[in-house]
């Protein structure tokens, strides 16, 4: 039971971390390697607004989300749009921006003394297992975010147009859907999702610059295992990794955790190179 609940919490954490990356990639095929930096930037931004400037906590979170959405959109408009279609350049450009942000943050924020307050204090017992309420918020947040994305992409005009672009960019263009606009929106939403993940997850630990790199690796691991660009795959992979990590930590030892994650990636890539739900060549063309 303990394993189940902690696995669930860890799975939700990973899903939240990865969903923004997966969303942006799924729609626009742009790998946002600044994802981890955006995550940490949102954490520090919230911290600055709430602790240094003394703004209301909810307001600080809202400002951070909007700020990160704007940064994501600007990154596409001013940087990625120029190298679009050249995957390596896309990765280098976005990673460079990510490193620049993280290392710049390092000048100002030294040490581990930064943390945002939890949403709700206290712990509860679920089936005899104590779990702090912030982790419950993480699980609920994961479910809500995934639900909202699903509803957005299935029932709104904008969301449907993004799914059109994701499946066949050129066919979508023929129907009047603007691919630059779609990519801008996708990166804005993806970055806002990174920020949302940060504000929900960071209260359980402290905000450190190095975590930005770890978050990027986690998000990549989840997306590669799930199949790049597949949203169902991302969610499934997050929970697989979450449970695998928790099981390893409980029964084998904490130091084996990262080994299991990397082994999972290698295994999936060996057995199914496009990931669990990768959609390369999934449907045969019919003539």
């Amino acid at each position: 039971m303990e394993v189940f609940i902690y696995g669930l919490a860890r799975g939700s954490t990973l899903a939240l971390m990865a969903v923004g990356f997966s969303f942006a990639y799924g729609v626009s095929r742009l790998p946002n390697f600044a994802h981890g930096a955006f995550y940490i930037l949102a954490g520090f931004a919230t911290w600055v607004f709430a602790q240094s400037l003394g703004l209301n906590y909810v307001l600080s979170i809202a400002i951070s989300l909007v700020l990160l959405a704007a940064i994501g959109a600007a990154m596409y408009r001013f940087i990625l749009i120029r190298v679009r279609g050249m995957e390596v350049s896309e990765i280098i450009a976005s990673y460079a921006l990510g490193v620049a942000i993280l290392e710049a943050l390092r000048c100002k924020f030294v040490g581990t003394g930064f943390s945002t307050p939890v949403f709700i204090e206290g712990t509860i017992k679920v089936a005899g297992v104590p779990i702090d309420l912030q982790r419950v918020v993480i699980i609920a947040g994961g479910v809500v975010v995934i639900g909202l994305i699903w509803a957005f992409t299935h029932y709104t005009r904008l969301g449907l147009s993004l799914r059109g672009i994701a499946q066949d960019e050129r066919a979508a263009l023929m129907l009047g859907i603007d691919s630059d606009r779609a990519a801008t929106i996708a990166l804005a939403i993806g970055s806002a999702l990174a920020a949302l993940a940060a504000v929900i997850i960071l209260p359980v630990g402290s905000i450190t610059v190095n975590e930005g790199y770890d978050v990027l690796i986690s998000a990549l691991a989840v997306c590669i295992i799930g199949g790049l660009g597949s949203w169902t795959g991302t969610i499934l992979a997050a929970f697989i990794l979450g449970f695998a990590g928790t099981l390893t930590a409980t029964y084998i030892g904490t130091m084996w955790e990262s080994v299991v994650v990397v082994a999972a990636i290698i295994l999936v890539l060996l057995l199914k190179p496009s990931g669990l739900f990768g959609r390369q060549k999934e449907f045969e063309e019919r003539v």
Binding site: R157, L175, I177
Partner: peptide, 16 residues
């Protein structure tokens, strides 16, 4: 759009 249903294909078509 291969992963979208018939109705959804039509709905995406109705973007404009």
């Amino acid at each position: 759009f291969p992963e979208s249903s018939v109705l959804e294909n039509l709905k995406i078509g109705g973007y404009l």
